[in-house]
């Protein structure tokens, strides 16, 4: 009797998630993917996906600059400026080069210039997704 009660109250523990081993690729792929959009896929021999990601994110960022979009700086002071910076920094190397060359000053001369700013932010945010995807491929979670 006591045994049956014990069996009824026994809880089934959920299977523990297996810790992913840290490999060189699991560190390098996201880092390179952030620095050069699409490169995290290319170094893992996902040629088609890598080139498409690279073309899309590069094109979006460059169109944003051509539309006279504004690049946010880390010390903007305003909370929305900081959020803009978080989006921009996702573009990695593109953001670094843009800041170094002093592009993206955002002289808003026409209505669609604000689209440029949004293009720049979204290019960075999309690269964050691409970085996560490169990491998932590196740890074997995604083919």
């Amino acid at each position: 009797m006591a045994n049956s009660t014990t069996e009824k109250t026994r809880t089934v523990e959920p299977p523990k998630a297996e810790a992913q081993p840290v490999t060189t690729m699991s560190v390098m792929a996201p880092a390179i993917a952030w620095l050069i959009p699409g490169a995290g896929h290319l170094i893992q021999k996902r040629w088609g996906r890598g080139i498409l990601l690279m073309v899309s994110i590069f094109a979006m960022f460059l169109i944003g600059l051509a539309l006279q979009g504004r690049i946010y700086k880390p010390n903007g002071g305003d909370i929305l400026d900081m959020l803009g910076f978080v989006g921009d920094i996702g573009a990695g190397g593109l953001y670094i080069v843009t800041r170094a060359m002093d592009w993206g000053q955002g002289a808003i001369a026409h209505a669609t210039a604000d689209y440029g700013t949004k293009y720049l932010i979204v290019a960075g945010l999309l690269n964050f997704i691409a970085v996560a995807d490169a990491y998932h491929i590196a740890i074997g979670k995604k083919p």
Partner: peptide, 26 residues
């Protein structure tokens, strides 16, 4: 170099690039 896009063409280009990234990553 600067370019001028209409509202619609800017939205379609945005949709194109975002859709490619979403499709590949999701």
């Amino acid at each position: 170099m600067t370019i001028q896009l209409t509202h619609f063409s800017a939205a379609v280009l945005f949709a194109l690039f975002a859709s490619i990234v979403f499709g590949i990553t999701q």
